[in-house]
Nucleic acid binder design. Structure first.
Lengths: 348, 348
DNA sequence: AGATTCACCACAATCGGTTGCGGTCGATAG
DNA sequence: CTATCGACCGCAACCGATTGTGGTGAATCT
């Protein structure tokens, strides 16, 4: 029942525990004769030796633990990121400590503190806010951090996300190509980078494609939720001199809410109003109407974040400027977009 | 930069590290005078002391780490379970190590081994197969395990899942009540308990409601996937003397596949065939037609699994028979079910 | 006053690996 | 044949917290 420890292996191989340790550690096995290494390895396998990670971590001050912090694992955006990160981390010998902050900053602070107490080597954080004191605390404590999906105002951390700018541009371009001119952006919350980046990109794209500021309006949602999306869409429809045939939603949940609001107002999608989402959540291809949306390579995002963190952990000191990776996105055209009413799509 | 350790606190409070340890540990603080406790606590707070969990775990042989093993975190069934478990675990001072086996047994074996090396106190396992050597290995090593969502042929582990029996019965009862008699069950894989339990329940319910074996057929899918569901539905439609107006799917993914196969065959749902799913995955209320399905209290399931594990961990030895909790389920009636064609719903 | 008890705290061993240092031994050079 | 060198391995300290044991002093009892 008691686990087999290094001393047991050493005894079986008739060597000192220290020697056994060197024999089993790839880097140091040059210090030991090949025969001895073989003997120790064989004994270890025979006894089913699994090193005690706690003891090793205590001595080496490297736990090979990585904390992944997400706001809500139930939000379909995050599981693929976690999955991608976990795959590369485990392949590299790391183990992931997952924590769900429940969108609660205080809880997040406690969780991070607790994970630090557990001696994690670094964090992958998908909850970054635009101004984030928790992150600056971590930075001043010298804890390696990689940001995924959401960035901050300050670019001192490595970051991997989607190319928001390109995604929004694709959406606007597509709507304009269909003939839309009155397009509203139901923006996500402005305290996270995706929310901010997307409105900035929306304004830039509007300008690029010759939409006036009266044509291209913005309403912001307090959260990435269906309820907020519905409320925002209502506001957009009720606005004075309202005129909207196209909607670029801050994400798919907001888009779903927008669809509700449109149905409520007796408007048909895509007959009267076209809607473009963001993220390509699972099953949005099966809703009615199938949602046109921007697809992000989430799993790859998580994997790359893990790669960045690992290189940071194993380069030990050599600090170059933090990488910022923007992954390419695709516009997935489905049923929720069509030419605006009483107007044919223009030819190029 | 170096973390503040117990010795630092002890020095600041002018006591021996051992005394400081007792002062800070709630159970032992009776061994220390109240004034000293206060001094130590104050010093600890002032210095921002966070105990080194590795060292503590090494000494006490209790890591307060719990491994959660899921087949695929991307499957919407599992995030709520993980979330529920994580909430109660962190509240109790435990940290969760998440691992995604990717439905690969060999990978699962390695992951579990690795987590054991990390000294986890126990596991919550959501990947159990009907016959599961990995679990018997854990049992013989004396590792506490709680099964969630899926059980095994042998009931030696505590288990918390949904009341499959009741769920399937509700589905059959509802279809029969609408007037359906030719009902097919597109069963899930038979190497996991949910798949087996649901066909057993289907047969029992069919008998209870007076369906003949020709009326109530079963086709099994190799996996819980849309592709398998579609293939199974095709088989069911093509079967000799096929006659089917009602479908009880092994889960929602299978139901989605079934909908595809029905559309492909030119059959309308619910006009020609009614479909009932299982799990109530997010957004199945928004697909076309909105899916009637059985809802499981997944988050509660995870939470309860965590509770069981914690009591097992903290009872230390007192082994009573393992609890088996079957959580109540609901039938959520939506658009994919209607009376069968050429027949009115019978009055009760 | 002297013996005894009790509260409080210091000491040191311990958990299981890792690693700097030094010792032994055979081989090679001188 | 002896001095030198290097390969190989043993020894013991160490990481940071916990805990059994024992010692000191004051308080209590006789």
């Amino acid at each position: 029942m008691p686990r087999v420890k290094l001393a047991d292996v050493a005894r079986a191989a008739k060597v000192h525990p220290g020697t056994a340790s060197r024999a089993l550690s790839p880097g140091q096995s040059g210090q030991v004769s090949p025969q001895t290494v073989a003997r120790v390895v064989r004994a270890a396998e025979r006894l089913g030796y699994v090193p005690n990670a706690q003891a090793r971590a205590l001595r080496t001050a490297r736990s090979h633990l990585v904390g992944i912090v997400v706001p809500d694992i139930t939000n379909p955006l995050f599981p693929p990121i976690v999955r991608g990160a976990e795959h590369v981390l485990t392949a590299a010998g790391y183990t992931v400590l997952l924590t769900d902050t429940d969108n609660d900053r205080e809880r997040e602070r406690r969780q991070i503190e607790s994970l630090r107490g557990r001696g994690v080597d670094g964090f992958i954080i998908a909850t970054a806010q635009w101004e984030d004191p928790l992150l600056t605390d971590l930075a001043s404590a010298g804890v390696p951090v990689v940001l995924a999906n959401r960035s901050t105002s300050c670019s001192r951390w490595p970051y991997v996300g989607g190319d928001e700018q390109a995604g929004v541009r694709l959406a606007v371009q597509y709507l304009v190509g269909l003939g839309h001119r009155a397009i509203v952006h139901l923006a996500g919350p402005q305290n996270v980078s995706t929310g901010r980046d997307r409105v900035r990109a929306f304004r830039a794209a509007a300008k690029e494609f010759g939409l006036t500021t009266a044509d291209a309006r913005v309403t912001v949602c307090q959260a990435y939720s269906e309820a907020q999306g519905k409320a925002a869409m209502r506001r957009a429809l009720r606005a004075p001199r309202a005129r909207v045939t196209g909607v670029v939603a801050g994400n798919d949940l907001i888009a779903l809410g927008a669809l509700d609001a449109l149905a409520e107002a007796g408007l048909d999608c895509p007959g009267d109003v076209s809607v473009v989402g963001f993220n390509d959540m699972p099953f949005v291809d099966r809703i009615q109407p199938a949602l046109t949306t921007v697809r992000l390579p989430l799993e790859r995002m998580g994997g790359l974040a893990a790669d960045l963190l690992i290189t940071e952990l194993e380069s030990e000191g050599t600090q170059d400027a933090p990488t910022r990776a923007l992954l390419g996105v695709d516009l997935v055209v489905r049923g929720s977009t069509a030419p605006p009413p009483r107007q044919r799509a223009r030819r190029r």
